[in-house]
């Protein structure tokens, strides 16, 4: 019997609301699944869609971006800008074969520790159901292995998460 699949989810949180909300969850000793690893940015408006793709490319099973509620953004409307990207990114991820449950944009304020727990729990449960995210890069690994078995000279690609730079 193998160990239960424990997804690794990258959480990208804005400093003023969601990161503080996650802090509050801790301060309130609210227990939630340990699967979300948090990266702090000043504003959800800072979140470049490349960060989300980077997380998947590095083997994340899900990405949770969280900012201030609409109207509450510390920088007035950075969260609306992230929302615009999110709308397009969702379609793009779907086209790239990534299930919608693996990416989520939420609003969590500094006093919503419970809500942060809820979002984390929901996401972890959903991703557990999906299983691990399979990088398209796997094709490359398969290919390299195939070539190796043929004994053809192959330029080794640096080990680690990605191929290429």
């Amino acid at each position: 019997m193998t160990k239960e699949f424990e997804p690794r989810i990258v959480g990208i949180l804005c400093n003023w609301c969601s990161y503080a909300g996650a802090d509050l969850a801790g301060i309130s000793r609210i227990k939630y699944p340990p699967n979300v690893r948090i990266v702090r940015v000043m504003c959800s408006g800072r979140v470049d869609p490349s960060f989300v793709l980077k997380a998947f490319a590095e083997g994340a099973d899900g990405v949770l971006v969280s900012g201030c509620h609409p109207v509450d953004c510390h920088y007035i409307e950075g969260n609306y800008k992230m929302w615009a990207r999110k709308v397009m990114l969702e379609t793009m991820l779907q086209q790239l074969g990534i299930e919608p449950e693996r990416f989520r944009l939420t609003w969590v304020s500094a006093n919503e520790g419970e809500l942060f727990k809820q979002y984390v729990t929901e996401m972890v449960d959903a991703v557990k159901k999906l299983g691990p995210f399979q990088k398209p890069v796997n094709w490359m690994t398969e290919l390299l292995e195939h070539e190796r078995s043929l004994g053809t000279a192959v330029q080794e690609i640096a080990a680690g998460g990605g191929v290429g730079e």
Binding site: Q95, Q134, G164
Partner: peptide, 27 residues
């Protein structure tokens, strides 16, 4: 934003193999 019907095809028209994910996740 939903009026952009094919974002992946539009924005990766010339560079999908050079992108972070390189292509579609294939179950």
């Amino acid at each position: 934003i939903s009026q952009v019907k094919d974002p992946a095809g539009t924005f990766y028209m010339y560079g999908l193999p050079n992108s972070l994910l390189r292509g579609r996740q294939m179950k």
